[in-house]
Design a protein around this nucleic acid. Structure first.
Lengths: 215, 215
DNA sequence: GTCTATAATTTGATAGAC
DNA sequence: GTCTATCAAATTATAGAC
């Protein structure tokens, strides 16, 4: 609705589109609503971006990059594996805190969009510069296996351990409405809850990895 | 109660609708696609269910009940708290295994549907017979607090502990496409992965709750 | 670049024959 | 109960003036 004078029309559209797409999904989004939110006319959307699909793809690809965040720094650091995992979790949750609706959006679209859609993501990933998430993960997994042999990590399947780590970070952002309902939290309380998790998620992993080497 | 021909068609429609709605969401679903999947005409959908919205609401409410599953039995049992939690996780994952797409569907609709939508859910919950999920959870939380005082559980915030438990169970079902991409699993491998989690999710909780009483 | 007006298409819903 | 044909509304996209 408002027109911040500092930002370009194109950028205002993108911001509005991100907000609406992320909340309602591709299918649930109306171009009119984006136009209203951007404070411009519907025709302008097609002037700057050819079609709804093209605008969506732009927003979605940027969202994907929010999902695989700047974790590289934490995961490539030269530190003991467990410290590294704790640091990653804190950094990841802090990152998600800034874009809390991205995970559900990405997962829903990855799920409801066809296999054709998934191919597009893989192609993007392959074309990426620098280290891809898959590469970073491959290296991390090798390090974790080594740590297991040396008794630094318990003999728990790596893929499941990693899944657990991501689950502890991401799940509260996916399940916000359900958690608010069941745990009786208003928006204010839920914000505080998410802040607490920055520490408590990695604390839980620490509990699981401590004193279990002997199992 | 049963009209052989009538209820058969009605049931076929419901099955088709469930499949399509759950995959594409309310907004992404076309009545035509449901009709095709059910092998009948579009007009029949409106004959048996007044509107798309009404058909959706039926499917969604049944899905909600799949999300809050028959956990009551496990959680109300008279057993040590930790055993009870492990049994719950196994039962819950086994349950989710039968309806793997329900969680993402429910969470997406809870998120994209307005607050008006959430009220409807609360009303349904309140009108429920027997013990509601909230009641079961309230009782469980009291038991967990008591167990903490007695040193049976570590002094970790209950709401976060419960969130972690649900996260470990549900997350793989929410993130299937992402996990398949990152961990390079085809559908067959992912099925095996989910089967493994029936044990490994509760194993992880066990690791976290063991040898941490003294903290 | 931005707008108004309108075309073109999709889609939920209904009417009416059988 | 089931179908065909069709309507009415919503929605994406474009044309053309300024």
């Amino acid at each position: 609705m408002d027109k911040p004078t500092g930002s370009s029309t194109r950028e205002r559209i993108k911001e509005a589109a991100r907000r609406i797409f992320v909340q309602r999904g591709m299918a649930g989004t109306r171009m009119q609503e984006i136009a209203d939110a951007a404070g411009i006319n519907k025709a302008m959307l097609h002037y700057y971006f050819r079609s709804k699909e093209q605008l969506f793809e732009l927003i979605f690809m940027e969202a994907i990059q929010e999902m695989f965040p700047k974790i590289e720094k934490e995961l490539m650091a030269d530190r003991p594996i467990r410290e590294k995992l704790y640091a990653f979790m804190k950094a990841y949750i802090t990152q998600l805190r800034k874009h809390p609706y991205i995970p559900l959006f990405v997962l829903h679209e990855m799920n409801s969009g066809g296999p054709q859609f998934l191919e597009k993501i893989q192609k993007l990933e392959a074309a990426e510069h620098g280290r891809s998430p898959k590469q970073v993960l491959g290296r991390l997994f090798r390090e974790m296996r080594k740590a297991q042999k040396e008794g630094e990590l318990p003999p728990y399947p790596i893929r499941h351990l990693w899944t657990n780590i991501i689950a502890l970070c991401v799940f509260p952002f996916l399940a916000k409405p359900m958690l608010q309902l069941l745990l009786k939290m208003d928006n204010r309380a839920f914000d505080a809850f998410l802040d607490e998790r920055i520490e408590l998620a990695s604390t839980f992993l620490n509990m699981a990895l401590t004193n279990t080497k002997h199992q």
